[in-house]
Design a protein around this nucleic acid. Structure first.
Lengths: 148, 148
DNA sequence: AAGAACTTAATGCAGAGGAATCTAGTGCAC
DNA sequence: GTGCACTAGATTCCTCTGCATTAAGTTCTT
């Protein structure tokens, strides 16, 4: 039977949440970083060394709100992983840079990040092929069949 | 170029978040329900009328934790949309049922839900075909090319 | 039948998120 | 140059979440 748009949505969400949780756990336990915190470090690490990314630029590529990002950056700064500098060209803006500690922490965490994603995508694809993600309705149907 | 596992993850997350936000907004504004609240109502509505779903059963199909679900159910109950009854077979458990008001609210919100999903999946697929979701690195490369 | 081990759901607590607001800085119109 | 509309980012307020714990109920062991 063809999956409905609702099935697709539930499938998409289930995957994202499941992988996200595993990722969160791994990064938190092994490197003391939340998923979003790592994502920001990762985006900064991808930048050219001469780039001057502002908060807004980061907000464009990490799907959280401006207010959450502002606080997240505050936390990273407090840990000494990034540095905030006033943007010379436009003094409303704030440029964000990795510190050496930040670069080191990122380098340390990136393998974990990639390993988790590789593993989870593989196992998720397998699960999808098996056709998971039933709803409460199907779950009860299955039960009554089992109970006969 | 072949997308890396990181690209896949960012793409997956971006989609899920984007659609989730639109959904949240639509359901909240038009029907006074959060995304998760609707999802629970929807799962309950899918059940056979004689099914006696317990909290744990719902937790199995809605990707939030037990504690969050317990409170979410509390909120729905306070709004009179569902009813909690002690499970006869196992008196630790709580059976959850839609009230008439809950069924009505769900019937009212479901078209919105489906319409949003249909529309967003279509536009998301289009965006994906166009190859979106660049990172901070690419963003700056694009800029320097433009400035070049 | 008594008690240990486990399960179900609720709750205290602390942290993270979003919407709206506030402050400071920019740029355009005149 | 003065005033007005706009933008960047920080902050306030409130809600939701997760983790850890608790209370009540069940099941297994002996």
């Amino acid at each position: 039977m063809e999956p409905t748009v609702v099935d697709q949505w539930r499938e998409l969400t289930a995957r994202q949440v499941r992988i996200g949780n595993v990722l969160e756990q791994a990064l938190e336990q092994q490197h003391g970083l939340s998923r979003h915190e790592f994502e920001v470090l990762d985006q900064l690490a991808e930048c050219a060394p001469d780039a001057k990314p502002r908060v807004q630029d980061i907000a464009d590529v990490v799907p959280i709100t401006q207010s959450a990002l502002s606080r997240l950056i505050g936390r990273l700064e407090k840990q000494g992983l990034i540095e905030r500098r006033l943007c010379e060209a436009d003094r409303r803006g704030i440029n964000v840079f990795l510190t050496d500690a930040g670069r080191a922490r990122h380098a340390e965490a990136q393998p974990t990040y990639r390993a988790v994603l590789t593993r989870e995508f593989a196992s998720c694809d397998a699960a999808e092929a098996a056709g998971l993600a039933l709803g409460l309705g199907e779950l009860f149907e299955a039960r009554s069949r089992a109970a006969g």
